[in-house]
Each structure stands twice: as C-alpha cells, then as structure tokens.
Amino acid sequence: MTDDNLDVPEGTSEVESGAPSLADELLARDTEIADLKDRLLRGAAEMENTRRRLERDKVDSAAYAMTGFARDLLGVADNLRRAVAALPAEAPGFEAVRTGIEATERELGTVLARHGIVRVETDGQKLDPNKHQAMIEVDSEAHEAGAIVSELQAGYTIKDRLLRPALVSVARAK
C-alpha cells in the first residue's frame, strides 16, 4: 500500500471506491464555469438595463423639470384671458388696456410653446378622457352626443404628457 491509496482498500480502484474520477471533476468544473458565466452575463445585462433606465430618467427629468412652474403659469394665462373677457366691449379708453393684455397673453403663449407647453385642442373634438375633463352635459342640436360643446378652461400638455386637462361641456345623448 502506498500513501496515495491509504483510504482505498487494496485491490480496488478509485472508480470502484466512489471517489470522483477525472472526467467527473472536469464535468463539475465545466458546470460551475457555465453557471458563473451565466451569472456574469445576467449581471452585465442587468447593469446595462439599469444604465439605460437611469439615462431615460435623466432625460425625462430634464424635460419635465419645470412641470410645477408651468402649472403655476397656467393660472396667469387663465387670468389674462379672464381680464380680456371682463373688459367692456364698447367702453371708451379701454382699447389700449385690451391691446396690452392681449399682447401679454400672446407673449406668454409664445414662451410656453417655446418650452413645449401646448394648449389642448377642443374645437370640434370628441371628448377624450386622456385630454379633456367633462364638467357638464348640455343639450345641443348642433353637436352629436359626446362632442365638446364649449371649453370652460384651457388644458395644456408639456411635451407628450398632460399638464392639465381641458375642462369642457359635452353634448348629452338624446
């Protein structure tokens, strides 16, 4: 008996004694290598997905960072429209005031549009719950059921997202 075969009884081989053969060890190592390679590839793919998601979040963050400020400015635009509507139609001396308020309103609209803030279209449209909020239903012979009759408050989008829905009145079904 030699030192190499101390735990193997005399007359038996390693295969017979249950000790792993060289082929079994290689197979186990190959399996372990394949598992590690798979984990490495999955980890790399997960890192790439995370990187892409963070990049997309960064772009969205930059594009929509001014959403709160834009919502606040929409109140100013509404008040300018109300101011023009409240001026008497034929009162002497108010033409300059009306012209000034309308110019300010146009300039505000231009600035909003420059930053991707666009008014939601309501004229001649059917009610779209993704853009419009129906406030009242009215009887209308001129409109089919579900069509927008009038706009109560303008709605706006920022880039491709709804900033504020348009508040509208809708024709009632007959």
Rank of each mutant, 00 (worst) to 15 (best):
T31R: 15
T31C: 14
T31F: 10
E32Q: 11
I33S: 04
I33L: 12
A34P: 14
A34G: 10
L36N: 06
L36T: 09
D38M: 01
R39A: 07
R39G: 07
R39K: 12
L40F: 08
L40E: 14
L40C: 13
R42T: 14
G43E: 08
A45W: 06
E46Y: 03
E46I: 08
M47G: 02
E48G: 01
E48K: 05
E48A: 09
N49L: 14
T50I: 07
R51H: 04
R52Y: 07
R52D: 06
L54P: 00
L54F: 14
L54W: 13
E55P: 09
E55K: 05
E55T: 14
R56V: 06
R56C: 00
R56L: 02
D57R: 08
K58L: 08
V59E: 09
S61W: 05
A62N: 10
A63F: 06
A63M: 14
A63I: 09
Y64C: 03
Y64K: 02
A65Q: 04
T67C: 01
T67F: 02
G68D: 07
F69H: 11
F69A: 11
A70I: 08
A70S: 01
R71Q: 12
R71H: 03
R71A: 09
R71L: 14
D72K: 07
D72Q: 12
L74I: 07
L74R: 02
G75D: 08
V76D: 01
V76R: 06
A77P: 13
D78L: 03
D78R: 03
D78H: 01
D78V: 00
N79D: 04
L80F: 05
R82C: 05
R82S: 10
A83L: 07
A83R: 04
A83M: 06
A83Y: 00
V84G: 04
V84Y: 05
V84H: 07
A85S: 09
A85I: 01
A86W: 00
A86C: 08
P88R: 04
A89F: 02
A91C: 11
G93E: 10
G93A: 03
F94C: 11
F94A: 09
F94I: 11
E95W: 06
V97Y: 05
R98P: 06
R98Q: 12
T99V: 04
G100M: 11
G100Q: 12
I101V: 15
I101E: 13
A103P: 00
A103Y: 15
T104M: 15
T104A: 15
T104W: 15
E105G: 08
E105R: 15
E105F: 14
R106A: 13
E107C: 05
E107Y: 11
E107N: 10
L108W: 08
G109P: 04
T110S: 15
T110E: 15
V111S: 13
V111T: 10
H115T: 09
H115C: 02
G116R: 10
G116S: 08
I117L: 02
V118G: 06
R119T: 08
R119W: 00
R119L: 11
V120Y: 04
V120D: 00
E121G: 05
E121D: 13
T122Y: 08
D123R: 12
G124S: 09
L127S: 02
L127R: 01
D128L: 09
D128R: 03
N130F: 15
N130S: 14
K131A: 15
K131D: 09
A134D: 02
A134G: 06
M135G: 03
I136V: 12
E137H: 13
E137C: 00
E137D: 15
E137S: 11
V138F: 14
V138E: 12
